[in-house]
Each structure stands twice: as C-alpha cells, then as structure tokens.
Design a protein around this nucleic acid. Structure first.
Length: 139
DNA sequence: GCCAACGTTGGC
DNA sequence: GCCAACGTTGGC
C-alpha cells in the first residue's frame, strides 16, 4: 500500500465536506497540474492518504482512503484531467500543523515541506507512521 | 496583502 | 526547443 497527501483549501472543499460524503466518498476533482494528476494515476484502491487544509489552517486534519482508481474528471471535458475517488477514514485527534511537521527533523524531506505548492503528493511509509502518531490516528 | 516559487503559455 | 511573460498557489 502506498501513502499520499491530498491538499485542499477548506473554503473550497474541507474535511467536513469529505466526512459528509461518508463511505460513498467523492471525486478529488479540479486538479489541473500534471504532477498531481500523475500521482493520482499511480494510486490503487485501498491506498491511504492525509487530508491537509492549506491556507489559514495549514494542518493535516484526517486520513482518507482511495476508493476508485483514476478516471476522467467530471468537472471538465478536457480528457487530460483525471482524478481518483476518496472517502474520509479517521479524523485527527489533534491536527498536525505545518509548523509541527517543519519542527520535526524526521519530516524535513516531506514534499509538503520541500514543494509546498503540489496539491497531491506521495508520502513515505515512515512519514506516514510518524504523522499518524502525531495525529493520534491508527493509520 | 505580499511575494517567492513554480507551472504554463506562446512568440520566436 | 528556448525562454520571457504571465498566472496561480500558498506560506508568511
């Protein structure tokens, strides 16, 4: 199983929106960046990821699971853009802020730290374990 | 609100 | 195919 990080502005699509969709989940649509799209193409059903709020909050707020492989993005007719479907899994007992992540030397190589603009990112197994621990989730 | 970083576009 | 110009994102 691989791990990922999904970033969203909470004012556009937040954790509560994701939770409201329940097990049916929702498309992670609207991505218009090739790198991010390519990562979604690599995802498999059952992969897990962090749900990160950008902008004001800047924190991992929960975990999600990939429930459908990449397929055309329903929000555009442009065949270049694809997305996966994800569902909310576990809420973070305490949000893991960007500040906390930056303060931990073990997480200094995270894409979130190195390339803050990428909206869909891979997370290593170790990074996954550490951030899950900080968030108080089982992973 | 500003600005650095980055990606995309389009002219050559 | 290069690169300048431009637009967008997101942290600060």
């Amino acid at each position: 199983m691989r791990h990922w990080l999904f970033k969203s502005e909470p004012s556009v699509w937040g954790w509560s929106d994701q939770v409201a969709k329940g097990d049916a989940g929702e498309e992670w649509n609207g991505v218009r960046n090739y790198q991010a799209r390519n990562f979604m193409r690599e995802m498999a059903v059952g992969d897990r990821g962090f749900f990160y709020h950008s902008q004001k909050e800047k924190a991992v707020v929960g975990t999600v699971e990939v429930i459908a492989e990449a397929h055309p993005d329903s929000t555009t007719d442009d065949p270049r853009w694809e997305c996966v479907d994800i569902k909310a899994l576990e809420v973070a007992r305490g949000p893991v802020t960007l500040e906390m992540i930056k303060a931990d030397p073990r997480l200094s190589e995270m894409v979130l730290v190195r390339n803050s603009r990428l909206s869909v990112q891979p997370v290593t197994a170790e990074e996954w374990r550490i951030v899950c621990e900080m968030a108080g989730v089982s992973g």
